[in-house]
Amino acid sequence: MDATEELNGTYFYHGHANLTPQELFNLILSENFANRTGLETTSAAMILAGQPWLPTRGKPVGATKGTSVASRLSRVILKDMRFPRGVSLYMPTGKNISTLKFTKTNRVAAFIGRSIPWLGYAEVVILLQLVAADTRRQYNLIARPKDRIAWASF
């Protein structure tokens, strides 16, 4: 048998025999997710580095308590570097999407430190979209026409 074949109405895929269409889809999804794991590790590291776990002396009322490793390191490396005069950028603050707020800053280190976890979240979304696209393409190439999944194109 080849790497992918049909047998008695079931599928054979990479050594797995008698697979239903759902099992075939799950194997392909798992395989594609594993192929992109390096990207996922980077996302997780960025998200974790941006969590406010380190204690701080004091913060204004309503501010997120604590600071992150990313914020502390960017402040050490970039010290008191500021954007050019008159430039203030909105930076994301908060631990997750439900606490997300935007505040202005003219300090480069604060902007970078607070943007890192959100870049990680964006990378996770991109990872999931890439895995879904790869899975869709590969599954629909293998599956019989009646088992194929019609995906919406947005």
Rank of each mutant, 00 (worst) to 15 (best):
Y90S: 15
A17L: 11
M81H: 10
A143W: 00
L54E: 01
F154D: 10
S153D: 09
L127M: 10
L24H: 04
D147C: 06
Q22A: 14
S43A: 13
R36E: 06
T42D: 02
Y90R: 15
L128P: 02
V131E: 00
Y139S: 07
A63V: 06
I149V: 15
R72D: 03
G50H: 01
P55D: 03
P92Q: 03
E40R: 15
M46L: 14
E6T: 13
E5C: 09
T37M: 08
W118A: 01
R36D: 02
G120K: 00
F83Y: 05
R107W: 01
R82F: 07
I97F: 11
N8K: 07
N8R: 07
E23Y: 07
L73G: 03
R148L: 03
I149P: 10
K101R: 15
N26F: 04
G86M: 13
A17N: 08
S98T: 14
G113I: 00
T93S: 10
I112S: 00
N96V: 06
S30N: 10
V125K: 09
D80F: 09
T105S: 08
K95G: 11
E5S: 13
I116P: 00
L24N: 04
K95A: 07
M91E: 08
N32W: 04
M1L: 12
G113A: 07
P117V: 02
L141Y: 14
R72E: 07
I112D: 00
D80S: 12
G62F: 09
G9L: 03
L7E: 14
P21E: 06
K104S: 15
A3T: 13
A34K: 13
L100E: 04
T93H: 05
A143P: 08
S43R: 04
L19M: 06
I149E: 08
A3Q: 15
A132V: 05
H14R: 14
V108P: 00
H14Q: 07
T64K: 10
A49V: 03
